[in-house]
């Protein structure tokens, strides 16, 4: 296998590549801002009816909206991250070229996805946040440690999200078309990440289920870290939860790739 230098190079090139799509980035950041405004007013209405809903006050709830809009694309809650290229390579059979290379397929695409996420955190994350700050009363922490832990939590969020999207891409070895599976993934991640409604306001058992699923890692947990809704030991628990899902899903991805390769290699593509 090649060294870490290769995967760093892959991440850097992926960052640069996404930075060339200027119009798409601008249009995306604008869309995030518009959705942010709509959702923020909805949440204000909701929280003025039910103050302290889910333990959030109205400022926390509105800040949550803008964190969601900032993380939506970097964390690829609607999929279409670096795995989109892998989906295409599996569909066309170009993945055969990747398979005979002395590289690790999963690390390669994880590196590419992290490079993409880094770019999109800057280009798709910051502009809507600034718009949100201009229009609404938001609350961000002043403690730099909170920001650092938040960044770590976002890296883990991208990794968990990637590990799910990687499995989706590998499903292409069996399915003629992954678009159905992709739609299902998007619906699940939109609902269970807390993008439209924070998981804290889910009722009873549904809330317990949602907090146990991997999608909680994508938005709810990093947001709670930044909102300082979690402090001390509870932050460590959140990071451990994300790391555990990342590890489990990445290992599952390796297993599935082995089965898929065996299928291609032994049975013929």
């Amino acid at each position: 296998m090649s060294g870490p230098g290769l995967y760093a190079a892959v991440a850097v090139r992926s960052f640069r590549r996404y930075s060339t799509y200027r119009a798409a980035t601008l249009a995306g950041a604008f869309t995030n801002s518009v959705f942010g405004v709509i959702l923020a007013y909805t949440f204000i209405a909701l929280w003025s009816e039910r103050p302290d809903l889910g333990g959030y006050d109205v400022t926390t709830a509105v800040t949550f909206v803008w964190i969601g809009q900032a993380l939506l694309t970097p964390v690829a809650i609607f999929a279409s991250g670096a795995e989109a290229d892998l989906v295409e390579r599996v569909r066309t059979g170009d993945v055969a070229i990747d398979l005979y290379r002395p590289t690790d397929l999963q690390l390669w695409w994880l590196a590419a996805d992290l490079g993409r996420a880094a770019f999109q955190l800057l280009a798709r994350g910051l502009p809507p946040t600034l718009i949100g700050l201009l229009i609404f009363d938001l609350r961000f922490p002043s403690n730099p440690v909170t920001w650092l832990v938040f960044l770590l939590s976002v890296v883990l969020a991208v990794t968990v999200s990637f590990s799910i999207r990687y499995l989706l891409a590998l499903s292409g070895f069996w399915l003629l078309d992954v678009r159905g599976a992709q739609t299902l993934t998007i619906v699940l991640s939109t609902f269970f990440s807390g993008l439209f409604l924070p998981l804290v306001i889910f009722p009873g058992w549904l809330k317990d289920v949602a907090f146990a699923l991997p999608w909680a890692s994508l938005l709810q947990l990093p947001a709670d870290v930044l909102l300082e809704e979690r402090t001390g030991w509870s932050v460590v628990q959140a990071l451990a939860f994300q790391a555990a899902w990342a590890t489990a899903l990445l290992l599952l991805g390796r297993l599935v790739l082995r089965v898929a390769t065996r299928r291609v290699v032994v049975q013929g593509g």
Binding site: G3, G5, L6, A9, R13, G93, R101
Partner: peptide, 21 residues
Amino acid sequence: RTTLWWDLPLRDSFALLRRIY
């Protein structure tokens, strides 16, 4: 099929291959 990367300049593809191999 191509072993090169569509979005990268040819030079960058070569540089990646240098690291791969």
